[in-house]
Design a protein around this nucleic acid. Structure first.
Length: 572
RNA sequence: CGGGGUGUAGCGCAGUGGCAGCGCGCAUGGUUUGGGACCAUGAGGCCGGCGGUUCAAAUCCGCCCACCCCGACCA
């Protein structure tokens, strides 16, 4: 057996910090910094220090093993990519300023790869010529570069971060479905092996026009995302994707329009109070600027617009609320705006406007509103679509039980890309009949560092990290309380050698520190099994063994201890 | 980019115009050793940067930079 890695704490590069740096707020960020696992370089950029790197590699290897098991072929694609490649698919615009862009000495523009669909499609173009060459699953684990609007939470969202990205190449949709399912199953095994409970949610497939997308999310109050799920039927989606509930639409038959004076009423709440109806009986107008042109949206008063849905619908890159100026220039009256008689600007209505009749809407006249507005009797819009934001408490779109919202961390994303990129890049193959088709692509990402941080978010206590053994940097924390006893030191040295000989990864606290310091560091670093050797225990011919998650240690005879420990470790 | 905040020793912080400080950590010596020990002596600073006001600036003014938090975005 090859001796496993051991490390003497006295020689470890990093040291633990008693206090976390003040600007670290997320639990995983604080603990990873305090335990000396990572070190900040720039905003959203981190070094992995030896302990953190070992944990990272554990996670990485789990991912690699499961990708290989699913039939993935590991490769490595370049980070430096010519900008032209991105211009060919038009995704340089979609990514915009998020792409790091540099210039070489010949003034040629290069980007630091934020993802690799283009590169893979380009390679596939050279090698995949026949339906016989498909399907292919190819992946890499490599640093990605994204100039995020706001990095946060340490490893949770960085600007340089390691990602496992796998790309599926298939001949048709059915085959893509199969690859997609393979990946979902592989992902489930990965999170299971990392002891990270996840929820699979429907996700927004973005402006690229992919047909289906799911996210794996880890539920934690410190998460940066919100997911919507139904406790009754199991429906789950992220906030961008979730279908809004139906709420409480008015049910009476349409009545004639009636203009009413509403002096001073500017908000939906004020309007509902003034007229004496619930907000779900009002019609709200919201104006956006989509790539510079004003768009009018109408939605029921109790609902909010989901800007991601709207953005996807409009296929625009930049979407923001229109300024008062822009609204006025479009001939609209903010606060009393209405779809009634509106012409000349694009209009989008949420599906909710068609659910009932007799809504109270603006009159496009300062201080006036109109009652009994009914779609489509009284007004039309260019598009009716689901652009409403889901929220906790709304009825589930499938079973109408009240929806719940939870904070979560996105730890994986699978995506049916389709043929968008392969078409643009001319990556096609010939089928049995000799007919050319674009390759059907899928892409599947896991942020390795984010996954690591998510594990810490869910595996810690007030003393520090409680690594699941499968991803712990070492399996055993060997902790001699030397005192003035050279016997203890000698026994510890021997045990250190024996453990390594038995194939146990051991972090050996050979420092001359007081017991309190050692115990606290052991808890902070979070190695699953702690072995304490002291004069007290030696007198009984034994050592203390304690799991990180246990309160009380137990005594094990020092004779044959290495083998015993080995057995303990394989137990879980 | 909008809003909020912070930059003083490795980390945490005090210092509102007059000698650059405290706790932890670090070094040396000694005493300690079952949950962050004690004594003594030390090392460590361009007070984020540039400019201005002043006899005198960490401190007041201006500009810039970096970093953090909330939002849009994402693995």
């Amino acid at each position: 057996m090859t001796p496993a890695a051991g490390m003497r704490l006295s020689h470890l590069l990093s040291k633990t910090l008693r206090q976390a740096p003040a600007d670290a707020e997320t639990v995983s960020h604080q603990l990873l910094l305090r335990a000396g696992m990572v070190y900040p370089g720039a905003s959203g950029v981190y070094s992995y220090l030896p302990l953190g790197w070992r944990a990272f590699k554990k996670v990485e290897n789990i991912i690699r093993e499961e990708m290989d098991r699913a039939g993935g072929q590991e490769a490595l694609f370049p980070s430096l990519q010519p900008l032209e490649l991105w211009q060919e698919t038009g995704r340089d615009a979609a990514f915009g300023a998020t792409m790091f862009s540099i210039e070489d000495r010949r003034q040629r523009r290069l980007v630091l790869g934020p993802t690799h669909e283009e590169v893979v499609a380009q390679i596939a173009r050279s090698f995949v010529k026949s339906y016989r060459d498909l399907p292919v699953l190819v992946y890499q684990i490599q640093n990605k570069f994204r100039d995020e609007l706001r990095p946060r939470g340490g490893l949770l969202r960085g600007r340089e971060f390691s990602m496992k990205d796998l790309y599926s190449l298939d001949a048709d949709e059915a085959s893509l479905d199969h690859s997609y399912q393979l990946m979902i199953d592989a992902y489930r095994r990965i999170y299971e092996r990392c002891h990270l409970p996840v929820v699979l949610v429907e996700a927004d497939s973005g402006a690229i026009g992919g047909k289906e997308s799911h996210e794996f999310t880890a539920l934690t109050p410190t998460g940066e995302d919100e997911i919507i799920h139904c406790p009754a039927c199991g429906y789950a989606a992220n906030l961008e994707k979730a279908q809004g509930g139906t709420g409480d639409p008015p049910t009476e038959a349409p009545l004639p329009l009636e203009e009413i004076a509403t002096p001073g009423v500017k908000t939906i709440e004020g309007l509902a109070r003034f007229v004496g109806v619930p907000t779900s009986h009002t019609l709200k107008a919201v104006f956006y600027s989509a790539d510079g042109r004003v768009v009018f949206t109408a939605i029921r008063g109790d609902l909010e617009i989901n800007e991601t849905k709207l953005k996807n619908l409009l296929k625009c890159h930049e979407l923001r609320l229109a300024t008062e100026d822009e609204v006025a220039r479009a001939g609209l009256v903010a606060g009393s705006a209405s779809p009634l008689g509106l012409t000349g600007i694009p209009t989008v209505g949420d599906e909710s406007i068609a659910l009932g009749a007799n809504l109270v809407a603006g009159a496009n006249r300062e201080g006036y509103h109109v009652k009994n507005v009914t779609y489509p009797r009284d007004f039309q819009v260019d598009t009716v679509a689901d652009i409403a934001a889901a929220a906790a408490g709304q009825g589930c779109p499938h079973c109408s039980a009240p929806l719940k919202a939870e904070r979560s961390i996105e730890v994986g994303h699978v995506f049916k890309l389709g043929t968008f990129i392969s078409q643009k890049l001319g990556a096609s193959f010939l089928d049995r009949e000799g007919v050319s088709h674009p390759i059907v692509m899928g892409s599947y990402g896991i942020g390795v560092g984010r996954l690591l941080a998510a594990i810490v978010e869910l595996h810690h206590d007030e003393r520090g990290i409680t690594w699941p053994p499968s991803v712990a940097p070492y399996q055993v924390y060997l902790c001699p309380l030397t005192g003035d006893s050279s016997q203890v030191a000698q026994a510890a040295e021997e045990l250190y050698q024996q453990l390594q000989g038995a194939g146990v990864e051991v972090l050996y606290d050979d420092r001359e520190e007081s017991p309190g310091v050692k115990f606290n560091d052991a808890d902070l670093i979070g190695i699953p099994l702690r072995l304490v050797l002291s004069r007290r225990s030696l007198e009984k011919g034994s050592a203390e063994v304690k799991r990180r998650t246990e309160k009380q240690p137990s005594l094990l005879p020092i004779e044959g201890l290495a083998a015993q420990v080995k057995a303990l470790l394989t137990q879980t």
